[in-house]
Amino acid sequence: MKFFHDKKKMRGYKEFLYILPFLILVLVFSYYPLYGWIYAFFDYQPPLPFSWDSFVGLKWFKMLFQNKSYAKQTLQVLRNTFAMSGISFFFSWLPMFFAIMLNEVKRTRFRKFVQTATTLPNFISWVLVYSVAFLMMSNTGLFNSVGMGLGILDRPIDFLKSNEHIWFKMWLWLTWKNMGWAAIIYIAAISGIDAELYEAAKVDGANRRQIIRNITLPCLLPTFFVILLLNISNFLNNGMEQYFVFQNSWNREHIQVLDLYVYNLSTSKPPVYSVSTALSMLKSIISVVLLLAANTMSKLLRKESII
């Protein structure tokens, strides 16, 4: 009996050994970098060796909010981050709306065509999106040449080299890239709705608007709620790629979100590694807290966790 037990245990250890190399990879690339957070507490000058003499405590964290020029930057960056995430958050019902519109189309081929066409931009990198934007919207682009040709514009406008409506423009590009893809979840959810519900409604003489309002929409709300919560937990994580490729000296003031600011700090001359690390550390911690809060909310309201 004991032998049998040990054998089973042995098998468990052996299986663990199989996954050990992969666990080491995870430790090296996901956990080990966390050690770098200590640079946020030191006055670290890259070529010099690291020493305890340069320990500065919370100096960089305080500087982000107290030093005048830094505080101004921090405030500006926070405003941009909140504005861009806020606009996306406010319009997060759009993919659901699009999915409902698509579901109303009875011709399968047209529906397939729209779905295929609108998901394509999601698979294109941000660099390519910028390239498309450049070829459409710059002063030599399609928009200007057509506008000039038709006499609507009297001189070319470079839409990319301007600081106007930049938050809204960034949201538009984000929506162009992502909305078709984001709608797939809702399309799947719609196809999962019990067909009997629709039939019963039709027998009762409900019209289309009533069916959408009383059946489709309520069935989609749980999915929408999960997406909304995930959006909240990602409020600070806009990612930097989109804003990095679109940034230029005209729009920097309004395009710099937290992720981009962290990058720009670390590549500025001279680089301010410590401040950048302090900021990204703060951001990570707040994001995790937001995620946990969103999760708790989901557990309270839906009795189901999202992570």
Binding site: W37, S266, T277, S280, M281, S284, I307
Partner: peptide, 19 residues
């Protein structure tokens, strides 16, 4: 859990670069 939880945090650019 150790593997899955890495989806939700990120050390940041500088620590990652130094690693």
């Amino acid at each position: 859990r150790i593997v899955v939880i890495t989806m939700y945090f990120n050390a940041g650019i500088i620590p990652w670069y130094l690693t």
